[in-house]
Simulated scan of single mutants.
Amino acid sequence: MKKGFIALLTLVMLSSCQEQTKIGFVDNSKLINDYQKKKDIEAKFQVEIDAFNKKVDSIGQSFQAQAAEMQGQDPNMVQKSSQEKYQALAQQYQRFQQQFQMEEQQIQKESQSQIDTLIKEVKAFVKGYGEKNGYSYILGSNEAGSVMYGDDSQDLTKTILEALNAEGKKD
């Protein structure tokens, strides 16, 4: 009996000495979308997009006005001359459209590049947070269901988001 008690006591002591695996999770979408730096990037690019759209609209209206003016000119004008002017106007408009398309692609490329950099930054931050706070794992929850269920007490989204935004304010 005494040996059984000692064995049980030893077993209890060994199991209590074992390091517990600390696991948490974050909602990836919420973490990225609520990150202030992402909101700032989106706001910056929205200003660029709005300016770009105004420019496109303005030039489009200018071309429409030119076309209307050509239609309103002397109806006795030779048809061939009229066609040539319309063709020249159409070619000029097509060049502007190509330029607009390239500008739009450049804005999208730049935006995506900054978002990709931001995601890498967030991943590095979460890794550092996990190491600093003794986590063995920090899982990412998303629409695809990598974490189907998580106890709310293990949801680190808000905590990490606050730390991430506080870190961003220091920069």
Rank of each mutant, 00 (worst) to 15 (best):
63 F>Q: 02
77 M>V: 12
97 Q>V: 03
130 G>Y: 06
29 S>D: 13
108 Q>R: 12
136 S>W: 07
142 N>G: 13
165 N>Y: 04
105 Q>L: 12
45 F>C: 09
132 K>I: 09
81 S>W: 09
78 V>M: 14
129 Y>M: 00
31 L>Y: 08
95 R>T: 14
133 N>W: 11
67 A>Y: 06
93 Y>Q: 14
36 Q>G: 07
51 A>D: 07
157 T>L: 01
110 E>L: 10
131 E>F: 05
36 Q>P: 03
75 P>T: 05
58 S>H: 04
110 E>S: 06
148 M>V: 14
69 E>W: 00
137 Y>E: 10
113 S>I: 04
153 S>A: 12
154 Q>Y: 03
77 M>R: 14
70 M>P: 11
84 E>A: 15
87 Q>W: 00
86 Y>M: 14
138 I>G: 08
119 I>C: 07
55 K>D: 07
59 I>K: 09
122 V>K: 05
146 S>K: 11
31 L>I: 04
141 S>L: 04
129 Y>L: 00
112 Q>C: 08
166 A>W: 06
100 F>P: 06
106 Q>C: 05
109 K>W: 07
46 Q>T: 02
134 G>W: 11
67 A>W: 10
99 Q>F: 05
149 Y>H: 09
92 Q>V: 08
42 E>P: 11
160 I>Y: 01
105 Q>P: 00
30 K>R: 13
74 D>N: 14
142 N>L: 11
147 V>M: 09
160 I>S: 11
164 L>A: 01
87 Q>M: 13
80 K>I: 14
138 I>V: 11
147 V>K: 03
68 A>I: 03
49 I>Q: 08
59 I>N: 02
141 S>V: 04
59 I>Q: 08
62 S>E: 13
134 G>S: 09
157 T>V: 02
123 K>Y: 15
114 Q>E: 15
105 Q>W: 02
119 I>S: 04
148 M>F: 12
136 S>K: 15
81 S>G: 06
102 M>I: 10
66 Q>A: 11
155 D>S: 09
138 I>K: 01
67 A>N: 04
82 S>H: 15
132 K>S: 13
101 Q>T: 00
136 S>I: 02
60 G>I: 06
102 M>F: 09
71 Q>W: 04
35 Y>C: 00
111 S>Q: 12
80 K>S: 14
121 E>C: 10
47 V>C: 01
56 V>M: 01
162 E>I: 00
99 Q>E: 14
57 D>E: 13
36 Q>R: 01
57 D>K: 13
41 I>T: 10
42 E>H: 09
103 E>T: 08
72 G>T: 05
50 D>C: 07
155 D>E: 04
97 Q>S: 12
91 Q>S: 13
68 A>D: 15
149 Y>R: 03
109 K>H: 00
148 M>I: 15
129 Y>T: 02
67 A>C: 00
71 Q>S: 05
140 G>A: 15
163 A>L: 11
36 Q>H: 05
57 D>I: 00
111 S>Y: 03
45 F>I: 08
125 F>T: 01
96 F>C: 08
63 F>P: 11
77 M>W: 06
66 Q>V: 03
143 E>P: 10
29 S>Q: 14
95 R>C: 06
31 L>S: 02
122 V>T: 06
70 M>W: 04
85 K>E: 12
64 Q>I: 02
121 E>I: 05
92 Q>G: 10
68 A>Y: 07
72 G>C: 07
164 L>N: 00
38 K>A: 07
160 I>A: 06
80 K>F: 15
146 S>D: 13
114 Q>N: 02
88 A>T: 13
48 E>H: 05
83 Q>G: 05
163 A>F: 06
150 G>E: 04
